[in-house]
Amino acid sequence: MPVATPGAAPRARLNGDGAGAVIELRQLTKRFGAVTAVDRLSFQVRPGTVTGFLGPNGAGKTTTLRMLLGLVHPDSGQATIWGNRYADLGVWRRKVGVVLEASGLHPGRTVRDHLRVRCAATGIASARIDAVLEETGLDGLASRRAGALSLGERQRLGLAAALLGNPGLLILDEPGNGLDPAGVAWLRDLLRRLGRAGRTVLVSSHLLAEVAQTADQVIVINRGRLISSGPVSQLTAATGQAVIVRTPQAAELRAALVAGGAAVRELADGRLEISGAAVEQVATLAAARGLPIFEITKETGSLEDAFLTLTAGERRPG
């Protein structure tokens, strides 16, 4: 089922040059006693992008999102959505869909009643309820009490509530928690459809492979500080890339590459892993020396590699 688009900003504005950031954090800081949870954090989320918000446990992701939504008061700095504090946005749920925690449900209230309360509180037509139940695969559980839902079903209910108002911005904190593989695939598809529909999505996650498949941009924080931000491809490329070559004359090619300044490592299966030289350089060198090549590929680091590299030595235990 396609994602409806009434709440999404027009594509032209979303992707047009000069369009302002949907989300902007400026020097945002929050301390809990002696612990600085978020430390002068600044970043922007551009319109119409799916942005992954990454960081190890305790990095400050949830605190950041809660400050953005006015639930936690920052010690200093600003967090704005379309240039305003969340509290000043008006018709909040029609503009911003939020999933923060799967536990924010009264266990005695049914799935449908939970959504009815959201509709009543926000003035959203309750006719939307059936649509979001179908969208999130909960249409068969409408009469079930929240206390009887699995964690994955609770996450889906959170997403259903977030989609009620057809918002142009979705802020999702670990929406994949508790989802089974089919649920993760469904979430990936949902995020892609939201992105295609022109929605802006900020999604925090520790499922890096999922983020890599769905996000246009990533923001990496650790210990409350910004570590990196930019396109996924830029981040993974920054961690280095290698060229893998299979040749029957590995020793000759290796010597030639090392002489040219590249670093070469022989893999267990006899292939060569070359860093410090592009595919074109390796192929040209081999051709010039008359060395046959049976296989040559460029290997880019994964988002997980990049994440681990960026946060190496700074991760908190647990």
Partner: peptide, 18 residues
Amino acid sequence: CGEFRHKTATGAYLDQPD
């Protein structure tokens, strides 16, 4: 108290930040 016990206060304050 139930709003805090079940953490539904979060949703209530997102619906109406005042």
